[in-house]
């Protein structure tokens, strides 16, 4: 994967959209320092726990014998290493749990929570390390509507407090609800622009070409809308010199 240029500002959410195999996970891994890369400029927060990850749901063992509180406490490990949690850690865990509205369920076994609660619990774990940048990997997959709304509300609150978000998703509609800018990716960068402008019908069709992905057509901006916004300039074409 080459030619990807983007940034995430503090308090901003960027959607990372592309079909399976587009390189979304690769990009996240590179941001986490788990892959070697040859980027000319590469700046990420490097302090302990400053990048939080909400992993894809299937990567978590659901019948694991831990309580929600214990899961969230895992988020403090970057700060504590092998030591047992301090008072600071415990209050950080409490803040994170209250943030996602699950403090009351902290003693519940993780596997007994609903899908949406688990997702918020894992979000709290990422929050517990006081991250500057949050990576959310397909956070809305398999969630029902109320859970989605709750997750969206939490993301909005955190953005207001200056946390930056990079959110991979298939869901165009959700991208438009919570993100300011969108990085369209399919092996290479298709576009990086304000979400409204990046997610035009023709661009989304290009990105998802030959991929069986359900797209809620009526929520897409049309090409005309895109041209109106940009007075007819051509954004995000592969030959666009702005997208190296």
């Amino acid at each position: 994967m080459t030619g990807v240029t983007f940034e995430v500002q503090a308090g901003e959410a960027v959607a990372l959209i592309g079909p399976n195999g587009a390189g979304k996970s690769t990009l996240l891994q590179a941001l986490l320092g788990q892959l070697k890369h040859t980027a000319k400029r590469f700046e990420v927060p490097t302090g302990a726990g400053q990048i939080g990850l909400l992993p894809q749901r299937q990567s978590v063992t659901e019948d694991f014998p831990v309580t929600l509180q214990q899961v969230v406490t895992m988020g403090r490990i970057p700060h504590r290493g092998i030591l047992w949690p301090s008072r600071d850690d415990r209050s950080g865990v409490q803040r994170a749990l209250e943030e996602v509205g699950l403090w009351n369920l902290r003693k519940r076994r993780f596997g007994e929570l609903s899908g949406g609660q688990r997702q918020r619990g894992l979000l709290a774990r990422a929050l517990a390390s006081d991250p500057k940048l949050m990576l959310l990997d397909e956070p809305f997959n398999g969630l029902d509507a109320p859970s989605r709304e709750q997750l969206i509300a939490i993301v909005r609150r955190l953005k207001a407090r200056g946390v930056g978000f990079l959110i991979t998703t298939h869901d165009i509609d959700l991208a438009r609800q919570v993100t300011e800018r969108t990085l369209l990716l399919n092996q290479k960068q298709i576009d990086f622009d304000e979400t409204e402008c990046a997610l035009t019908l023709e661009q989304v069709q290009r990105v998802f070409d030959h991929h069986a992905v359900e797209i809620d057509g009526h929520t897409l901006a049309t090409a005309e809308h895109h041209n109106e916004m940009h007075h007819g300039d051509v954004h995000g074409r592969p030959e666009d010199p702005e997208a190296p």
């Binding site: 726990g49 990850l53 992993p55 895992m74 988020g75 894992l122």
Partner: peptide, 14 residues
Amino acid sequence: VFRAFDRSGSAAAG
């Protein structure tokens, strides 16, 4: 325990 629970999460936590 962290690694057992969630491999990618623990790797992300450094």
